[in-house]
Amino acid sequence: MADESLNPKPAALPRPRENPGLKLALELGPILVFFFANLRGEWLVKHFPVLEKLGGPLFVATAFFMVATVISLVVSKIVVKHLPLMPFVSGAIVLVFGGLGIYLQNELFIKMKPTIINALFGVVLLGGLYFGKSLLGYVFNAAFRLDDEGWRKLTFRWGLFFLFLAVLNEVVWRNFSDDAWITFKVWGTMPITILFTMSQMPLIMKHSLEDEGEKESQP
């Protein structure tokens, strides 16, 4: 018999259900701020001269993105009562690499940030599977409950998907303009992620576990 300690059941410790609309707004909001701040970067500098010290539109947009990210995390902590792991890690990397990019006036830190975040998530998820742990269950168990096989398969797929996003970001920023990269980052990456998430619904439905309340209500 396999040692169950090597494969914990994250679904057994569900957190309170999160509001999907609020969660999406908190995660998507900073990205939209980044896009529109870059789009109106020159206008912002013209009307708020102090922003000129930050550098070009990309650096101004990054500063707005950093502020919006902090606000999003604070609101999440106040309203949802906890900091989601993945947005928290992403936020920390945003602050570090965004701050370095602005301080050194080097766009490389800003453009490689999505690569580093996605590669980190992909390696951690796949590495966890290597050691017998379906880490995705600890992140998403507030949204749904799956059996062990379901968490393993979903973790593997998300791990590969994060690595795909990392490679995709490298391809786009190295071969296209800043505006094209930012546009793709907002209006390309998000739809791709939504489509990938929807494509996982058959797996989720197949391996879903019933809530305790549903079990008790059945005759």
Rank of each mutant, 00 (worst) to 15 (best):
F48A: 09
F48D: 05
P49R: 15
V50H: 13
L51Q: 11
L51G: 15
L51K: 09
E52F: 15
E52A: 12
E52D: 15
L54H: 02
F59A: 07
F59T: 06
F59W: 03
V60M: 14
T62L: 12
T62E: 06
F64R: 01
F65H: 02
F65L: 11
M66H: 12
V67E: 03
V70W: 04
I71C: 09
L73R: 03
S76A: 13
S76W: 00
V80S: 03
L85D: 12
L85G: 15
V89I: 14
S90V: 10
I93Y: 04
L95G: 02
G98K: 11
G98S: 09
G98F: 01
N106G: 07
L108M: 14
F109P: 15
M112H: 15
N118K: 12
A119D: 05
L120V: 15
F121N: 06
F121S: 04
G122P: 05
G122D: 01
V124P: 05
L129V: 05
L129N: 02
L129R: 10
F131Y: 08
F131N: 04
G132W: 04
K133N: 15
S134K: 13
S134C: 14
L136V: 11
V139E: 07
A142H: 13
A143Y: 13
R145C: 05
R145L: 05
R145P: 02
W151Q: 10
R152P: 08
F156I: 07
F156Q: 08
R157V: 02
R157N: 09
W158C: 08
L160C: 06
L160K: 09
L160F: 11
F161K: 11
L163N: 00
F164T: 11
A166K: 00
V167Y: 03
L168Q: 07
N169I: 03
E170M: 14
E170H: 04
V171E: 09
V171D: 12
V171C: 10
V171G: 14
V171W: 04
V172W: 00
